[in-house]
Every structure is written in structure tokens, then in C-alpha cells.
Amino acid sequence: MAAGAISVPLEVYRFDPAHDPAPRYDRYTVELEPHVPVLSALLKVRAEIDPTLTLRYSCRSAICGSCALQINSKSRLACETPVGPEIERHGRIVVEPMRNQPVLRDLVVDQGPFWHQYDRIDPHLRPDPAHPMPVDAPTSMSPEQVERFKETPRCIACAACFSACPAVEADPTFPGPMALAKLYRFVVDPRDGTTQDRLVRIQTEGLWLCLRCHLCTEACPKDVRPSERIRDLKEMAIAVQGATERGSRHAVGFKENIRVAGTLNETRLVRQTDGVVGMVGQLGQGLRIWRKKPELLHRPKPIQGQAEVDQIYEALDDAKGGP
């Protein structure tokens, strides 16, 4: 045992759908220094205890995106998650395959669903034929324009965000954090000629299904912050197309709603989002809630200082150059 090594108990998900009736968890204990990553622990198991354990891995330096797994329920790259803090917090390390992608065997998942969503956002630069690239010279792009990509060029397509996302889990029409961050990368690219089409299309293809839960941003090993880029896409989509979808109507409606009384009129917000017809569909649910919370039926009284709220709105609208 190397100096400073600790005992690392692992519980590893094992499942070969062709042979096993159900998944099981195999326990192994290896001795490692605390800073050593979980990937090294798994490779040690493979080399010294059980060569049948299978997983994806390659670069071991957080750049190839192969080894994303669930480590004590968190979606992480195995190669850059040290064993020490996991043992400190949980006393053991439970290693499971990523979520939201079917298990092929043990820790290896079928990444088909992830790549399908990536393909859906048209991940190809589409230059504008009206503005051809310069001949024999690179496009000119200021450092500020490069800054607009934020951290999206760092994405290594590891799918940790896809694994962590509750909207992906609940709705196959949601493209997921990685695909949307990738879309952002194309939308802000001055060389792409289809920015507006991309924004219009995504409004009806899942953009508004993001929950803003930021679980993707927690999971991302490269600080791409997909949830924040999705927020940017929403703002850009409204700027391009206006509030045409339920999601954008809700966002814009919320803002306008508060202006009226300086406080939220919840019943009115439902009408702003769904229209009168949509509201009727929610009537049953509404009645159940109104019975318990009758105050929701009353139009809220304007707050003290409502006039000032209105002035702030006006100033902000002016700053934007119009309503």
C-alpha cells in the first residue's frame, strides 16, 4: 500500500442483459491515495480483480468525454473525480452507468439517444451564401466575438448533463442541455447564416422545456454552464420572433403582468400563457385549487408605489429602444 493510501469500497453496477435476469452490484475494495480518480480505481479492479467489468474510457484527462458515469448518484467523469472526497462523504463509492441512455452492459450505455438529440439541432455550420467566406483568408473575428461563445467550445460531449437532466428523463422531445449549448454555439457564430431560423425552429422543438434546474451546470465537467446558455437562447428567441410559444408567452406575460399592479395576478397569468381556450382546459384543476385558496380569484390590489413600478418598466423599455 502506498503511503497515505485509503481503503476504497466500491459498489459497481453489473448487468449483461443477454445473460443476467437483473442488474446486481458487485463489491470490490481497493487501496488508493485519496487524490486518485475513480477511473483508476475501476481500472485497478479490472487489472487485479475482475477483467470482465466493462466501461468506456480513453484519455484519462477529461478531454475525450468517454468515462461519464454516475458516481454516488452524481453524473461525473470518472477520470477527474477523486476517490477521497467520495469516501469522506459516503463511506463508499457507488458506480452506476449514466441515466437516460439504455445500458448495453455494466457501465457502458447506448449513447444513441444523446447523439440523436445532438443531430436534431443541425450541428453543422451553415454559412450564408449571400456573405461568402473570404477567399484564401480566415474570417475576421474579434476577441469579443470569440467571447460570445462563452464556454461552449469546451464541451467534450461526455453526456454528463444529459444523464443529470430531469427534463430529458421525462420527455423525449427535449433536446437536452448539451444539444442546446451546441445550438447556442452556432447561433452566436458570426459565420453562420441561419441564426434566425435556428432560433425560430428551436422555439417549437423543445427550447421551452428546460426547467432551469441547473443540474446540467452542476454536472458539467468543463464549466460549459448549459442552463445559462439555454437562458440566453430563450432571450434571443424572443428578441427574434416575439412571444409566440406558451413558454415565451409565459415569460413575457409574467413581466407585463407584474407591471399592472406591481404584484402578480396569477389567474391572469394563466390566461396570458394559455389564452381563454387553454384556460378552460385547466378549469377542473383551477376549481380544486380555488376552493382551497379563494384569494386567488380576487384581482390583486395595486401595491403602494405601483406608479413607480410602471416608470421603471418604461425606462427599461426605452433603454431597449422601444417596447
Binding site: A167, E169, D171, W208, R212, L215, R246, G247, Q282
Partner: peptide, 25 residues
């Protein structure tokens, strides 16, 4: 696990069935 997950509310007005599925889980 669900203790740190999303409740689904943010898309209650966007796609209620998905929101409810998330809450239900």
C-alpha cells in the same frame, strides 16, 4: 434521489403532462 431534483413547476404552463411526470417521479 428526488430530493434535489426539479419539481416540474417551471414548465407547468409549457407542457403540463411533462411537468406532472417530473413531479410524480
Amino acid at each position: 434521489r428526488g430530493r434535489v431534483m426539479c419539481c416540474g413547476f417551471p414548465i407547468q404552463f409549457v407542457k403540463p403532462e411533462t411537468a406532472s411526470r417530473i413531479a410524480g417521479r
